[in-house]
Design a binder for these strands. Structure first.
Lengths: 327, 327
DNA sequence: TTGAAAGCGGTACCAC
DNA sequence: GTGGTACCGCTTTCAA
């Protein structure tokens, strides 16, 4: 069995209190005693039990993060930014993916029991569940989702990015556009749609094309629907994957792009560059990093009132939206 | 403060032992007592402390996973496969990225204190450190890396994939090829290089082009070196990102591809499809899932001897390696 | 400067 | 069936 603090105490001929002091170099300990303890600890290869410590300190020194998936680059980047800051702050990171998980809510509850606070990404958990967490005293930061019941939040300026993108399209004489994506899947997507609506003049026409999920396959499928009827001037997709799926199918169908139809995505993932896809970049890693900092403030108690951060977005114009719409 | 088991016991007029029994429905408890306890627990909104339980049971019910990064799709997929299985087995997942972390080894040690076992991906931690973990009784599974000191391992058949790819290139009359990547960065990469060497006939020429990291930027940079000197028949890259970086730069330089030079990558990430990149697919998610299962066997004690799994790879031919080399 | 002892919140053995 | 109680491994008063 592994050595405990009592073994070290016995070996060094001191009390466990003294061993604890030495290991946490808190109170002053006589140097000779200190050395004896360190020698004993070294001799026994003593490593303090994280569990014992956590229970006594009543803190986990760990944060959680809940995300729907890690497939696309988006969530992976957010998680990375989060982990990086959390590690700096001396906290472990627990992850929980809700993909294909029917018991997501109970899983989140269980996770909340194992950490000092957690970040919830997007629409992974119902509002009511988040509120329940907060009421029970959990520290919660929402990312890519409007704040709920006093929780902190971090979001990208979706509306602003959407407006910039829309204005760019308007400059190209786009008048009929289709938004591809389901605003109900994610608050972020809903915001993007709203931004477009805000920037659109009365003489423009915006249709909404619902899709079941935001992946390439769905994008390709969407194109199929339009091959038998009129194409709009432009498709604006809820994310890049969707747009990339459309690109593939459009070019396979021989549609002139960006001449006949323009396509834009969202996120600026790596593949977007290769496809020459116009998109709106959002600071994915920074979203995670900011969430980690806010969470730390909540946990350490240095701030008690909720705060809501907005991070910038940036329009990235590439070849899928070049040239004016043919008259 | 949150209710503890003692509060519930008092409220229900029973001992804590009985409360514990009811909550874990272990030993038989009289139904009326049981109901009283459940009512009290419900009334007090009692949720058992994970820490208390873990300390008493002397298990964390959590697994760790150490990876270098999460930027590319590769590690993200592995982590996802891992998390998915771990969750099914009722274990939480702790993550640790070693990217830009000078104290990686101590961070891994700390993580090992917080979980029942962990998975180490690629060259994130020195062999000696892994051995130390194993010696101290930690359950360790290595992924994309040769086993160390009695740890389990899960790997893709890199050699086999590399041979298949090489034979494909040979069929196209490729004779002079350059392997782009640093075999010392990862055992996986070293295996791929070895596979190529094995499949190459004596009259073929294989050069090794070292790069500092396996990202697109490096790929683009590599191309720069060849614009002033002779191009090989084909570039085989250590991963897709590298290959994609090369593709962009090559086409910018107006090099005929795949006529003048062929390019192949590794992993089959999403962007590879859009770029029409020939590559070798490996079952990323399955690597993680398998690791989680092996780890569970280790932790549950259902297996004590180390085991080593090899997962299949698959050659995916696309447009970057079409047509024979011009004579 | 150091030690004894009371927690932290559970589990589980041993009596009754 | 239940209750008393001894842990699990550490931190932290309170005294000495």
């Amino acid at each position: 069995m592994r050595a405990t603090i009592r073994d070290v105490a016995r070996e060094a001929g001191v009390s466990i209190a003294t061993v604890s002091r030495v290991l946490r170099d808190s109170t002053a300990v006589r140097p000779t005693t200190r050395d004896r303890v360190l020698a004993a600890a070294d001799e026994l290869e003593f490593v303090p039990s994280a569990l014992g410590r956590q229970l006594a300190e009543r803190r986990h020194a760990a944060n959680g993060i809940v995300f729907p998936d890690l497939s696309g680059p988006y969530y992976a980047e957010v998680v990375l930014g989060y982990e990086s800051v959390a590690a700096e702050l001396g906290r472990s990171v627990l992850i929980l993916s809700t993909r294909d998980r029917p018991d997501a809510e109970s899983a989140v509850q269980a996770m909340a029991e194992r950490c000092d606070g957690l970040v919830v990404l997007g629409r992974t958990v119902p509002d009511a569940a988040v509120e329940r967490l907060v009421v029970r005293g959990a520290h919660v930061v929402m990312v890519a989702r409007p704040p709920v019941g006093g929780a902190d939040s971090v979001n990208a300026r979706n509306r602003q990015g959407a407006r910039a993108l829309t204005e760019h399209l308007l400059d190209l004489d786009v008048r009929r556009l289709v938004f591809v994506g389901d605003p109900s899947t994610s608050p972020d997507v809903a915001e993007r749609l709203r931004g477009i609506q805000e920037a659109l003049p009365a003489d423009a026409d915006l249709q909404l094309h619902h899709v079941d999920s935001l992946d390439e396959e769905c994008g390709a499928h969407v194109v199929g629907d339009y091959l038998t009827r009129a194409l709009p001037d432009a498709f604006v997709c809820a994310n890049d994957e969707l747009a990339l799926g459309m690109l593939g199918r459009l070019s396979a169908a021989g549609v002139d792009l960006p001449g006949r139809v323009k396509v834009a995505g969202w996120d600026d993932v790596m593949a977007a560059r290769y496809a020459g896809l116009t998109t709106v970049r959002q600071p994915m890693r920074e979203l995670g990093a900011t969430a980690a900092r806010l969470l730390d403030e909540l946990i350490s108690g240095s701030r008690s009132h909720p705060t809501h951060e907005l991070l910038p977005t940036q329009l990235v114009v590439r070849s899928t939206t070049l040239g004016k719409v043919a008259p």
